[in-house]
């Protein structure tokens, strides 16, 4: 099975929702449909290159400044992913910038833009880019995200959205970014 297919199967099994997109504009439109409120968009190279902020605003999305007070009120956070891990359906987010963490932890919905080509096979294959991330800067906060926040702490019943996002949308794009270290 190819990596993209494996990734999609695993991500869906973990409770993520896949959204196939043909262009950044289409991605913005889908976010507008699904966000259900104001959105946090932390700065990232790929989003800037695609002028995602403008695209979102064009699609009618209200953007909030990413700070702690506003973040708590946002309906959704929008981030890019550095890369993904196929076998577990995992997104890898270089989250050293606090904005990325706020956008991916506080709002009830999290949208992640992922280039279909940036998928590695498994956790061991992910170590190469992970090590590069560590070498790139002296301090890091790297997040592996697999599906929405979950708990089974009451009677082992799987329940979504205890502390982090209740919904995780993965927007799949081509020509979005080719660098595994770029968010």
């Amino acid at each position: 099975m190819d990596l993209l297919k494996t990734f999609c199967t695993a991500a869906e099994a973990a409770g993520a929702v896949l959204v196939e997109c043909k262009s950044p504009a289409q991605a913005a439109a889908r976010i507008a449909e699904l966000a259900d409120g104001a959105v946090l968009l932390p700065v990232s190279a790929s989003c800037e290159r695609a002028q995602l902020a403008e695209q979102l605003q064009t699609a009618g999305v209200r953007l909030l400044a990413v700070d702690r007070t506003q973040a708590a009120d946002a309906a959704a956070g929008v981030t890019s992913a550095g890369f993904a891990i196929a076998d577990t359906g995992t997104l890898v987010l270089e989250s050293t910038a606090e904005d990325v963490r706020l956008a991916s932890t506080l709002p009830p919905r999290h949208f992640v833009l992922l280039d279909r080509s940036k998928i590695v096979a498994d956790g061991l294959a992910a170590v190469t880019p992970l090590r590069q991330l560590h070498q790139q800067q002296p301090r890091n906060y790297v997040a592996y995200i697999t599906g929405p926040s979950r708990t089974a702490d009451i009677e082992r019943v799987l329940t979504i959205g205890v502390h982090g996002p209740k919904q995780l949308y993965i927007l799949l794009l081509d020509n979005w970014s080719s660098d595994l270290l770029e968010m």
């Binding site: 695993a10 099994a13 973990a14 076998d87 577990t88 359906g89 995992t90 050293t96 910038a97 606090e98 498994d122 956790g123 061991l124 992970l130 560590h134 002296p138 301090r139 890091n140 906060y141 790297v142 997040a143 592996y144 995200i145 697999t146 599906g147 929405p148 926040s149 979950r150 089974a152 982090g164």
Partner: peptide, 24 residues
């Protein structure tokens, strides 16, 4: 790779967080 599978039968937990040093 092994911990969540053997702990609860999950392929992977929702979050694996790598923290090095004093971040912003």
């Amino acid at each position: 790779q092994v911990l969540p599978k053997n702990a609860t039968g999950q392929a992977l937990t929702s979050y694996v967080t790598w923290i090095r040093g004093a971040v912003p």
